[in-house]
Design a binder for these strands. Structure first.
Lengths: 196, 196
DNA sequence: GATTGAACATAACAGTGTTATATTAAAGAA
DNA sequence: TTCTTTAATATAACACTGTTATGTTCAATC
């Protein structure tokens, strides 16, 4: 990666961290990087390319948050630790979270490369979910259960960003969310179809 | 409401239904309504006012979807019917759904009036959730459980809009979602804290 | 009828992502 | 090393965005 490309990406990442996607105009990125706007087109094929890089960063942050030492933990505890990591990431990197879940601009469509990273992240969740299921569980069953967990945790993050979140006086949104997910994991473990 | 205001709102609604928020520029709305752009500022205080009207429409659609005859249904069945209505609405009115959950433009912030309608919709969900709980359940317990259901169902809708949704070969996303929610409702009903 | 405020048309403003044009720099071939 | 081709670059222009400014017309009130 050449110097200008690196400078552009660094400038974009910094602006994004400070001000989210609203701070990311091609002129402000170019200015901060000390180059002209054309660099964004030659190196990144336009603003979409910048957004793709940030999207990929976002899912990499998701994967990192769920990457930890698993020894001596039960399957449920591994999942819950992953869920906690996911919530921590969502809170610490709100701009990235909003970008990867399309809470910014529905005109942005991730590239195939960016989508592949999203799928990889889901693959990680799938592996953790498989720990909850019998060894001979089908791929469809694993996917179904992984999606279930993801829908639940993402739902909590998304609603926290919502206008109605202010109705809740809850001291700790994510503790509440974790407890609900924990109950659901128990329900998954108790399902007849999920027995060895 | 005067004629121009009505024409503008009608034009905006039609454009929105066809092309989502991307179709809603003040010039295209004004042109379709047969007025100049200034009407959007005098009648709606700008584009935000149009978005507020559509946001309010969106939550009204949510409330309608969950409004049905409840006689002869158990508390769980009432909730599941509401969940089905919610999914049907989310599918039939994707533009509205994306708008009310911020999947469009994070520069749009709902007005106090629009937020009040969102809160009203949550109040409806709260009433249905209360049916699952003992009569003496506290407001906090009701809110917690209502949020749980909402997080789950919204999570499924949101992930259906996501790039990773294409991984799933599932014939019926929402049937799968409903089943997961049903399991969770059972888990809620089984909780010691939720017993009469 | 005169005054005031609202509604309205149009132009201009400041911003957006992108493309066009010309120039310079870098890489590859002879 | 020199020449040719390609890539990178600066700048201006384009078409679009939401909004404000300016002036005119309309409607309501006195």
């Amino acid at each position: 990666m050449n110097i200008a490309k690196r400078k552009i990406l660094k400038a974009a990442s910094e602006l994004f961290l400070e001000g989210g996607i609203a701070a990311l105009s091609v002129r402000s990125i170019a200015k901060k990087a000390g180059v002209s706007t054309i660099g964004i087109y030659s190196h990144f094929q336009g603003k979409e390319g910048i957004l793709d890089e940030l999207y990929i960063q976002g899912f990499e942050l998701v994967m990192q948050a769920m990457d930890f030492e698993r020894k001596a933990l039960s399957a449920k505890d591994i999942m819950l630790k992953g869920v906690r990591g996911y919530f921590a990431m969502a809170e610490a990197h709100e701009g990235h979270y909003r970008l990867i879940f399309g809470e910014n601009d529905n005109r942005y469509t991730p590239s195939e490369e960016a989508k592949a990273v999203a799928e990889k992240a889901f693959g990680q969740l799938l592996k953790v979910t498989a720990l909850l299921l019998p060894d001979n569980a089908s791929m469809a069953l694993k996917q179904k259960n992984a999606l279930e967990i993801w829908a639940f945790v993402h739902g909590y993050v998304s609603l926290k960003h919502h206008a109605v979140a202010s109705i809740f006086e809850t001291p700790d949104w994510y503790a509440m969310a974790e407890e609900a997910v924990s109950v659901h994991i128990d329900a998954i473990l108790a399902k007849p179809e999920n027995q060895p």
